[in-house]
Design a protein around this nucleic acid. Structure first.
Lengths: 241, 241
DNA sequence: CGTTAATTTGAGACCATTCAATTTCGGTGG
DNA sequence: CCACCGAAATTGAATGGTCTCAAATTAACG
């Protein structure tokens, strides 16, 4: 489905953020990059690390996380193919959190300098990249709301809505079903719950016929019901841009 | 302390984000703006609203929030003088959340177009503004961790650390004491707790001699203790940039 | 096909919530 | 200057959602 050999997934994504010209598209495709493979649970970026490359997912899933002093982990976002996992580091120059692969990942490592040269030279590409970092921020805001004020059922429903929505948008769905390699422990760390309670809550969503979730595969059986359960409104994803 | 008559607080802030030239500073100070006053609890920006101006706080405090369907409120960030409350809207063009004043606020309303013209013309100013939006995003990430994985005591301690740290940085402290117009209900909505439990938890922080918090005034009595209680590490504020 | 990871189940404990009432504080007008 | 008022802070007691700990079952994988 998605091309994993060049940066065309990025062109497609950024085309939705700004009105790119053919030259802009060509310039993005001309970005230098090296391909890099990561096994399951590998660290792609570490907190405190200086940035040399920005990492785009060609294949696989990744997530960002922070560790607390007591060893607790909070997952901050999930990332799917065609997304950068650390775009802000290209501008800030240093990572303030960790990024890990969720399963086997194929990444395109784009040198920070080449990326910054490109966006400095091309204002429309710059706008697209800036919008990308701002949509990231909008998602973080929604996650604050999610873990701060929703109960366990809504939290999980909301998270599943978001992921299904984003997966659908990149064409990763096969008729309402998605590859979904998240463990319940990872869902727990993303929603601020425990794995045990996540399990019970997922059962409740299944029992109500909203989702089907088994071994690496998610199907949304009742979109309307899941949206309502999760109090989901996609405005924050700025899809229409 | 802070000048409330021109945009020099913004110049001071952005000078920490990028190496601005005298011309850059002059161009920022030359930005057109209108002053606007907001009473307590006034809406400065509403979700879904198209952006015409970006709002910088000259005096007073503000906060961003989202409302849930059931009427619950989650506060997403607090803002203090010298900060924009909706900078990302200058790029995105539409608000995805609400912004309200916390007390009486004096704002500088900068036309979106003038701001975008400036940053398109001046790459260093642009970097400073971009960094500003990215630090925002970094704070949201830390808040996800805060409400997701810390207990009530740590949450509140962390929030107080962040605010004291940021207030100190703009020179708003009077020997460890700060104007602090947040009600316990607002602290609760920011930490994902109830007002009642926030009250009890604040008492515990007071009892342990970490803070003094009464009627609009916060003093940090034991910085080290408060940092530890809140698991606070200021890396995410990218202060050193 | 054995071994480890992931999911599922049960029961008890606890942190935070809910609801309600009381006290304190800040501001206002007489 | 004091009486009054509404907002904010505080207290108590009961409830409940989520956690903890532990064990059992199932799925994934070399």
């Amino acid at each position: 489905m998605l091309n994993t050999h060049d940066l065309s997934p990025l062109v497609r994504r950024w085309s939705k953020h700004a009105d790119l010209s053919d030259e802009d598209r060509g310039a993005i495709l001309a970005l230098p990059f090296t391909r890099k493979s990561f096994g399951k649970d590998a660290y792609i970026v570490r907190e405190g690390q200086e940035t040399t490359d920005c990492s785009l997912i060609l294949k696989g899933f990744a997530y960002r996380q922070k560790l607390l002093r007591d060893g607790c982990r909070q997952i901050i976002s999930f990332h799917i193919p065609s997304e950068f996992v650390d775009l802000q580091n290209g501008v800030l120059g240093m990572a303030d959190h960790n990024v890990q692969s969720l399963n086997r990942c194929e990444m395109a490592m784009v040198p920070r300098s080449a990326l910054m040269d490109l966006v400095n030279a091309r204002s429309t590409v710059r706008l697209a990249m800036w919008v990308d970092t701002l949509i990231d921020a909008s998602i973080f805001r929604e996650w604050v709301v999610n873990v701060g004020r929703r109960d366990s059922r809504s939290r999980l429903a909301h998270l599943l809505c978001e992921l299904a929505f984003r997966l659908e948008r990149i064409g990763a769905d096969k008729g309402g079903a998605f590859d979904f390699p998240l463990t319940q422990e990872q869902l727990a760390d993303a929603t601020g719950l425990t794995a045990v309670h996540t399990n019970r809550t997922l059962q409740s969503l299944r029992r109500d016929g909203l989702i089907q979730l088994t071994s690496g595969n998610l199907s949304v059986l009742d979109w309307k019901g899941l949206r309502e359960a999760g109090d989901f409104d996609e405005l924050y994803l700025h899809h229409q841009l």
